[in-house]
Design a protein around this nucleic acid. Structure first.
Lengths: 240, 240
DNA sequence: GCGGTTTCGACTGTCGACGATTATCTAGGG
DNA sequence: CCCTAGATAATCGTCGACAGTCGAAACCGC
């Protein structure tokens, strides 16, 4: 039983990762996971000695992993003080939303030229599924499905570099504290925008697809901004 | 004499850089410079011992710099073999051109909302200057001026993250071998496109500005592709 | 002479240790 | 009582060394 099925690929994958560049890579991915999952919250200090002990390695590979994470924009390095999980201020989050919009818009533009019948069918299945989930008010299921839908769109655009960069932006957006609030807000609204996007794709009009995709993220940015303003107001009220 | 004047800022600057995060950062920037300048051509292997000796440090900081350069997409790491300056294949270069288009388009869109009279004046000065240089057939001056013009546009969009990412893409594009050919081709043509871009900005129409900016890079992509095809043909002929 | 094998060299991966810097705690003076 | 200065501890920056791995040249058998 243990030989067949789902746990084999995991082992093979881990081994491949270990072979490809070993400790540093493994450590880096693990820390990245911890950061994105929220186990290492923004502002948290990453103690080299402590983490090295945790992973059972020396500080060398750890420092290399830190450097990589720094270059990717996940952590901040302060000389003689240590590295910290980046706190992304609201202004930068808005900047990233704009960049994400541009990249997502590009995905739409590229997709309009590549859309196959099978893809269209699958996309419409996603739409129906999300309508269903939204109608049931199942937040827990909507969010990952929504994420999967967007990932499928970007990955189908046929531009690998785009996929990497887009992911990078989405991940960085997770380092903003308001994240949890954003998720719960305006999900019902978004599926209507999704239909507009798919319609635009189906029309084969690059510019129309671009605009639909671009505006979708721009609206997400607005929702993000409004929840931020609300919490700011709430905190102001609370402070009274 | 040695105390006064131009060499003092250099020392101060070096010291500041050394204080901020020291060896690793210095080494990283130097290697990045060597790569972008072409002193370390794509495919070149980066020997840790050699480079460490060259910079007068041990291998530790060097390896960290390598990791950072890897995360930034400048080098490729092969376990137990070493790191190599990335060879960007033509397909990936085209992908990056699309991303650059999207980001530059965003810059145009943002600029259309922020354009001041002073900026417009400065931009028109750039246009006239480049017309002049182009008329004189001075390639050597046109290229850096053109680069400066584009940098000014992106930096004026008011999005710091955009500036970083845009630069990253431009730099990566330098790792494609065809670079030198691209530079010399179609420079006269481009200033006409520049005027279109500035006109679009002046109109204050976001979408129009976006399209003008986006298409400008798309045309550069086409020029790049055509020079590549030509050299491919030339090589095919040569092979006969 | 040629293919396979073995040995050798170079280089990377990893580690532990030393020196330097910063933060913290405590003691003394105002 | 507060503030400042010194000492101590924690932690980062850097280095040199050892072990594992890959490639290449030399060697041997056919």
């Amino acid at each position: 039983m243990t030989k067949a099925g789902s746990d084999i690929p995991d082992i093979a994958d881990q081994l491949a990762t270990l072979r490809s560049s070993s400790l540093t890579s493994v450590v880096e991915k693990e820390i990245e996971r911890l950061i994105l999952s929220g186990a290492l919250p923004p502002g948290e200090r990453l103690n080299e000695f402590q983490l090295a002990a945790r992973f059972g390695t020396s500080r060398g590979p750890l420092r290399e992993a830190m450097r990589s994470l720094h270059a990717k924009g996940y952590v901040e390095v302060v000389r003689n003080k240590g590295v910290f999980v980046r706190k992304i201020p609201i202004e930068e989050a808005l900047e990233i939303y704009d960049l994400r919009s541009a990249l997502f818009g590009l995905a739409g533009r590229l997709l309009a030229d590549r859309l196959t019948d099978e893809m269209l069918i699958r996309l419409k299945e996603y739409l129906d599924l999300m309508d269903e989930i939204a109608a049931a008010g199942d937040f827990e299921r909507y969010y990952p499905t929504n994420l999967e839908f967007h990932a499928y769109l970007v990955e189908s655009a046929g531009n690998r570099t785009l996929v990497k960069e887009y992911r990078s932006f989405v991940h960085r957006l997770h380092l903003c504290r308001q994240r949890t609030l954003v998720q719960a807000k305006g999900l019902y609204v978004s599926n209507h925008e999704h239909r507009e996007m798919i319609d635009a794709l189906a029309s084969g009009n690059e510019n129309r697809a671009h605009e639909a995709f671009f505006r979708h993220v721009q609206r997400a940015k607005q929702r993000f901004l409004s929840t931020f303003d609300e919490t700011a107001k709430a905190q102001a009220t609370k402070a009274d």
